[in-house]
Design a protein around this nucleic acid. Structure first.
Lengths: 229, 229
DNA sequence: CCAAAAGTGTTGAGAGTACACCCATGC
DNA sequence: GCATGGGTGTACTCTCAACACTTTTGG
């Protein structure tokens, strides 16, 4: 026995993932309907238990992959929830993670999977345990992050219009933005490349497509952007 | 056995606390020298194991109290560290918390306790395990928080001078601030009460003392301050 | 020719930043 | 009378926010 080490008790450790997506209209979150007790039939975040030889980051990535088929997604740890009775079955402490993904890119895979469904933020049903709190924290964090540096490109197709990008920001921040101010601000960040190509699907005039200039972005990353909207 | 619940493994759960203090000169952090193996003699954050019937928040408060005698301190969860080999003895996952306290107010209590010592941020020795990372994250968080709303009053005596407050911000942000701009900004927040009393210890002229106007502060809390320095 | 979305600049207000001199007093 | 830290205001710049009209083209 090692002196000073006196682990009082063991507990179960889990991860839960808040997956955000965007469908060109609303910010959505991916939920699953539980097909097992407790709380069978209710909606919840995607979760799973930690394995012996993986980190929480690994576990979150594994759970996400198992339930959606999605790989190589940036996951960020949010907060660890530890209320004693949060899970009625056993003392379980859960670390929440959030990720943002492109709905179209993954939709096919996801829809084949078990009981997963996208919900607009305004239509999220009551979730099990403390998953509402988790979602809440995730939304707040996403909003804060959005104003620090340009997240959100992960949520769009490779080529996108200014309008789409604006709608995405509006969905995340849950408020309307002025078109001219938005364009000016985005352009001043200098992380987009304007293509000669136009998207003709949304208007007769057509709107220019942009791609994300990853190189520029990475170069500026450290300084932060402080895109205040 | 409950279907769908398949907890793969159990792990040990701990908390570690990063305690910041201020001595009118430097921002300091409270460390303890381990008097047990492993890593006996090395410096570490204050930590302990989670008990069966307490939350992580509770555990952090308990550990802090046990090792410093300090009560009723605002602790904020930082991040949960879960590298498989972070603790060589057993798989241990640790959730870090940080707090900021008034050194003078508690110094007597603390100095009686086991091996605890304040270190200026620039003089922190190498810490055990991943405690360096924890400290690093805490400093970053503290700096970010400082610019969102006026933290830091916790670190000062009840009555303090503008100069002290400025030094505190300089210590947290690790840069020099302009005296006039600082005073203007603080005054524009309208959360201090200027006393008629002066502190005569630092100069012949004496400098006015202030107290924190908690009521005003709480009233404004929600809107945030965005004290950009 | 008209409906529908795209595209584009200017102005005013407020916040941030840089900057220098006088004041009070103990010694 | 002088050394030491305390106290104070202004001018410039930059960013944010509000705001409206023209362009394109498919139908």
């Amino acid at each position: 026995m090692i002196i000073g080490y006196n682990p009082e008790d063991k507990v179960y450790l889990a991860v839960d993932c808040i997956i955000f997506g965007f469908d060109n209209e609303d910010l959505k979150v991916l939920l699953i309907q539980r097909d097992f007790e407790p709380e069978q039939g209710k909606w919840s975040l995607m979760g799973g238990f930690l394995k012996q030889n993986e980190t929480l980051d690994d576990a979150a990535a594994r759970v996400l992959h198992r339930l959606t088929g999605v790989h190589d997604i940036y996951l960020e740890q949010l907060y660890t929830f530890s209320e004693v009775d949060r899970d009625p079955v056993a003392r379980t402490i859960s670390t929440s993670y959030y990720a943002i993904i492109n709905i179209e890119k993954y939709n096919e895979k996801i829809s084949k999977k078990t009981n997963a469904k996208w919900f607009s933020l305004s239509e999220v049903p009551q979730l099990i345990f403390d998953h509402d709190d988790m979602l809440d924290k995730a939304i707040k964090r996403l909003r804060r992050r959005t104003s620090i540096n340009p997240i959100g490109f992960e949520l769009l197709p490779e080529k996108f219009t200014m309008r789409q990008l604006q709608k995405l920001y509006e969905a995340i921040l849950n408020k309307e933005l002025d078109k001219r101010n938005f364009v000016n601000k985005i352009n001043s960040m200098d992380v987009l490349i304007k293509l000669k190509e136009k998207d003709m699907s949304s208007s007769t005039k057509g709107s220019f497509l942009y791609i994300f200039n990853e190189e520029q972005y990475n170069a500026k990353q450290d300084n932060h952007f402080y895109l205040k909207l």
